[in-house]
Structure formats: structure tokens, C-alpha cells
Nucleic acid binder design. Structure first.
Length: 398
DNA sequence: TCTGGGGTCCTAGGACCC
DNA sequence: TCTGGGGTCCTAGGACCC
């Protein structure tokens, strides 16, 4: 395989995405600390982050840290629409776009030809276009590998552009704290710290075998390779999801078995619709539970034959709920979820879906259909058109 | 009053098979 | 018949990401 020796991979990452959309749409919020989500912080503007507010923090804690923050409820449809527009700019830049989430993607701009300009020029233009046409700040990292591009954008945030030239990779990487490595969370960072390893350079200086014995085979090898700047993974388009889940937090209130059953019925009903709309079938049903001490448990069952039929999935999920009954009775249950795994195509996939009466469920389905077939970058067109009653949504790409 | 909701990947052990 | 190696599948848990 051809291995690029040039920096042609962009990691483009919108800054404080939900909060930035709110600031864009309401001038009163600009330059002020904004928190999206009142129960749990879904996003915090950089002004709020300056006070220590972080994503996934409880709303109470966030308000204590930053009492002057303006708290707004999330507007998912606005974020979906903004994401759609940004991804359109991405795809206009290069066809090689790999979406990672609603607000970030890898772009490979190698081989675009001279008229597009150098990768640095392309990256700068991309930032200008997103800022000018969509009104959102976006940070771009540019490097020879996905991993380095991702690290670069993380370092360059917010509203930045950082290029890591191939001859400066290790000089850039090695002084960074290990926590900057994609895939190193609190647990792994702690384990490394017990060996006195705190920087990427210190990871690179340890024998790979030592990392493997400390962190496990895959993580050890992965981390060692990354610390040396090795990452051969190409930018891939059309990555398909491997599982599909729905869950619901229960709060602290006690629930009767009938309550739990009703919740599971609702979750399975939603999942079944999404699965069928995506033209896929699942073989493995997993029941997820979380308890008031934040411990988790799962119970799963694999069917002989994959299905997308709600009754079959529901029967399985109910069986798992019965199996888990003892766990539930002795601990306070705070979350229940159902996940469908081992997804496969369901032979006959429809090419178009009529959404004459678009409701929330139909939109859910449309999103999944497009994501599953054309990659996450194509998601939001169906959502947008689906919101307009009476329009059929063509799901074929342009 | 209600309060995170999605995902990916890896590991380990047991069952089972060749 | 016993032993052992090696592989796949399933289940449960865990780390991590946005």
C-alpha cells in the first residue's frame, strides 16, 4: 500500500459544538459562559470551561462552578442541521470524508490536484468556509496520520489550525501528556503513572512488551505504535454502524416490574423501527442496567437467526429482564437500555422512503437509514426534508 | 418535574469442535 | 482412551469516545 510521507489528513472538529450553535443563534449568549443541558452538561462554551465546567458534569456542580452561566436546553434539530451544513462543506472539500460523530470528521486531501492548493491552504479555506457560511468556529489538525491529526486538533483548540509536518512529528508528540493520546482515559493514565510514565515520549521509551504486560495486548501495542507516530489506518468512507441501542435513565424513584416492562417495550419498539428502516437485522440482544452506585451489568442473548421483528426482539429482551431480576431486586436501578448487535443487511433494502406524515419516529428512522447506508455525513438531509410534511425523501446520494 | 444518550473496541473464560 | 493444541462462538465486563 502506498504510504503517504506528506501531511494530507485533516481532523476537523467543531468547538464546543452545541454551545457554539446556541451562541451563533442568540447574540445575547456571545462571549458569555453558556451551558447546554440542565440535568447533565451536554456542552459548555469556552467561557464556561474557563470556570471548570466540563461535558458530562452534573448541572448542579456546573452551576456551582459558574453561577453566572446561562443554561439553555438542548435543541437537537438545530445541531443536526448545523452538522449537515458543515459536512456538506467537508464533502465539497474532498470526497474522502470519514465522520466520527456529529461534530468531527477526518478528511483526506491527498491527491486532490494542484488547483485545490496545498493541504495547509485547503485546511485554512475549510475553516474560513465553516466560519463564514455556517457561522461556527472549527479547529483543524493537519498531519500525515489520522492519529496525529486528531492530536493536533486537540492541541490547537479552540478555533485553531495546527500542522504537524512529518519531520517534526516526534518533537510535537513526545512532550505531550499521555492523556492526549486518543484512547488513553483516566484508568490507563493512572496505570501508566504508577510506572512513572506521564508523557508520550516516556511511553515511546518503554519496551513494547512492558506496555503490553501493563495494559493488555491490544492497548499496549496500539499505544506504543502511536507514541512512535505509527498509524497506518486510512480515511474510510461509508463506515457502517455495528450496533444500535436505546436507553433510558430512571432517576432514583423505585419502579415496579410493570414499569420496567413498559420501558423495555418502548425501547424495543423504537429500536425495531430504526432497525427495519435501516434495512438491517440483528442477532444479539443486550439488556443494559446501571445502578445507583454507578455499577453496570449486562445480560445478552444471541439468536439462532437475525431478526428485525419487534416481537422476537421483545421476547428476548423480556427473557433477559427476567434473568436479571435478582440483580434488580437487590440494587437500585437507575438506567435501563437495550442494544442490538451483530447487525447485518436485510437483503431487500428500499431505495426511498415516503415521509408524507413525518413524525419523530419517522425522522429517527430516516436518520438511521441514511447513516447506515451512506455514512454519518449523509444523515441530516433526510431529517431536514423529513420535517417538511408531504415530501418524499430520496435516499440515493446525488 | 425530571434529569445522558448514544457508540467502538478489547479481554477473559467457558462451551464446543476438530 | 487419553492428552493436548488450536480454533470459533457466546457471554459479561470494562475502558474509552463524543
Amino acid at each position: 500500500m502506498f504510504v503517504s510521507t506528506e501531511a494530507t489528513i485533516l481532523h476537523a472538529d467543531l468547538d464546543a459544538f452545541y454551545a457554539s450553535v446556541e451562541q451563533r443563534d442568540d447574540p445575547r449568549l456571545r462571549a458569555r459562559p453558556v451551558i447546554v443541558g440542565s440535568g447533565v452538561v451536554l456542552a459548555a462554551s469556552y467561557e464556561a470551561r474557563a470556570h471548570g465546567v466540563r461535558t458530562a458534569m452534573s448541572g448542579g456542580q456546573a452551576r456551582r462552578l459558574c453561577p453566572q452561566a446561562i443554561v439553555v436546553e438542548p435543541r437537537m434539530s438545530a445541531y443536526t442541521e448545523a452538522s449537515r451544513a458543515v459536512f456538506a462543506v467537508f464533502r465539497h472539500t474532498t470526497p474522502l470524508v470519514e465522520g466520527l460523530s456529529i461534530d468531527e470528521a477526518f478528511l483526506d486531501v491527498g491527491g486532490l490536484g494542484k488547483s485545490s492548493g496545498s493541504p495547509v491552504e485547503i485546511a485554512a479555506r475549510l475553516r474560513r468556509e465553516v466560519a463564514g457560511e455556517i457561522g461556527l468556529p472549527i479547529t483543524v489538525g493537519l498531519a500525515r496520520t489520522k492519529f496525529l491529526a486528531k492530536v493536533a486538533s486537540g492541541v490547537a483548540k479552540p478555533d485553531g489550525l495546527l500542522v504537524v509536518p512529518p519531520h517534526r512529528e516526534l518533537g510535537f508528540l513526545h512532550p505531550l501528556p499521555v492523556r492526549r493520546l486518543w484512547g488513553v482515559g483516566p484508568v490507563t493514565a493512572d496505570k501508566l503513572a504508577t510506572r512513572g510514565i506521564r508523557t508520550v515520549g516516556e511511553v515511546a521509551a518503554v519496551p513494547e512488551s512492558a506496555l503490553v504486560s501493563l495494559l493488555g495486548r491490544a492497548t499496549g501495542r496500539h499505544l506504543y505504535a502511536l507514541a512512535l507516530g505509527r498509524d497506518p489506518r486510512p480515511v474510510r468512507t461509508g463506515v457502517r454502524r455495528r450496533s444500535m441501542g436505546a436507553q433510558r435513565a430512571l432517576g432514583r424513584r423505585d419502579r415496579s416490574p410493570e414499569d420496567l416492562d413498559a420501558i423495555v417495550v418502548g425501547l424495543v419498539d423504537r429500536l425495531g423501527r430504526r432497525l427495519r428502516a435501516a434495512g438491517r437485522v440483528s442477532r444479539t440482544v443486550t439488556l443494559r442496567l446501571r445502578f445507583d452506585d454507578f455499577t453496570r451489568a449486562t445480560r445478552s442473548h444471541t439468536l439462532a437467526q437475525a431478526t428485525a421483528e419487534t416481537p422476537a426482539i421483545l421476547t428476548t429482551a423480556r427473557g433477559l429482564l427476567a434473568v436479571a431480576g435478582e440483580l434488580i431486586s437487590i440494587r437500585g436501578l437507575t438506567l435501563i437500555g437495550v442494544a442490538l448487535g451483530d447487525l447485518h443487511d436485510d437483503g431487500a433494502v428500499q431505495l426511498a422512503l415516503p415521509f408524507g406524515q413525518a413524525d419523530a419516529g419517522a425522522l429517527d428512522c430516516a436518520v438511521d437509514e441514511v447513516r447506515d447506508r451512506f455514512g454519518s455525513s449523509a444523515i441530516t438531509r433526510a431529517v431536514l426534508l423529513g420535517r417538511d410534511p408531504g415530501i418524499s425523501v430520496p435516499l440515493l446520494p446525488d
